[in-house]
Amino acid sequence: MEITLAAEPVARLGDVVITNTMITSAIVVLLLLAVAAVYRARLSTDSPGRFQSLIESVLEFVLNLCEATAGKELGRRVFPLVCTFFVFILTANWFGLLPGFSAIWVVNFEGHRVPLLRAANSDLNMTLAMALIAVGTVQVLGVTTRGLAGYLKELATPLFLAPIHIISEISHVISLAGRLFGNIFGGEVLLLVMYSILPYVVPALFVGLEALFGFIQALIFTVLSVVYISLAAGAEEAPSAHAA
């Protein structure tokens, strides 16, 4: 049993290497788009079914979170991005806990036997991409709200703290990406070890725990993103940002 931080390569298209986390994230994206397409087709204003009510309740939960943290206008503007963070991270985390998820193994182009699928958030590329998008949005909002001069002025006020501010912004990326990756990767390793040591009953308890942690991590990533965004947009647009 070999445990690697990096995602395992599964296939190669020319010079491009396809890893198992790329396959998983693509499947999760397609799955969510399919669910959204079904939801869109069945959408009814007057008589929502259980499926629609479930999805509506999730969206309203995130929308309320956005509006409460970043204010009504800004909260609505960033809602699509923030909600996608929550939905994707949660689905990807729970998708990795499905029975048989890690049971499919293939021999890759290097002749190594590797799992075909691996939890998308156990790849730093995935969590880093999302963290960069979140913090990138924060910077863009900071510039659009205050103007480039105002943004730079705030970053360099007081001047001797400018490096600290820049490091702080970078640390947001590292903390967002590292926290999610660490938890999901750690959970995967824990489950793998548990399956190896005690293959019956006991791993089920850890699967339940991982499901809970998966939800918590999705929530933490989402909440922190909204808080960073609301702070970047300033107190005028985000009345409750200080409380967060």
Partner: peptide, 20 residues
């Protein structure tokens, strides 16, 4: 890998925005 995941996430944001 970073680009793949970022693009996949971007596609998801766009698709969910339109559909959901």
């Amino acid at each position: 890998g970073l680009l793949w995941q970022a693009v996949a996430f971007g596609v998801l944001v766009f698709g969910l925005y339109k559909l959901l």
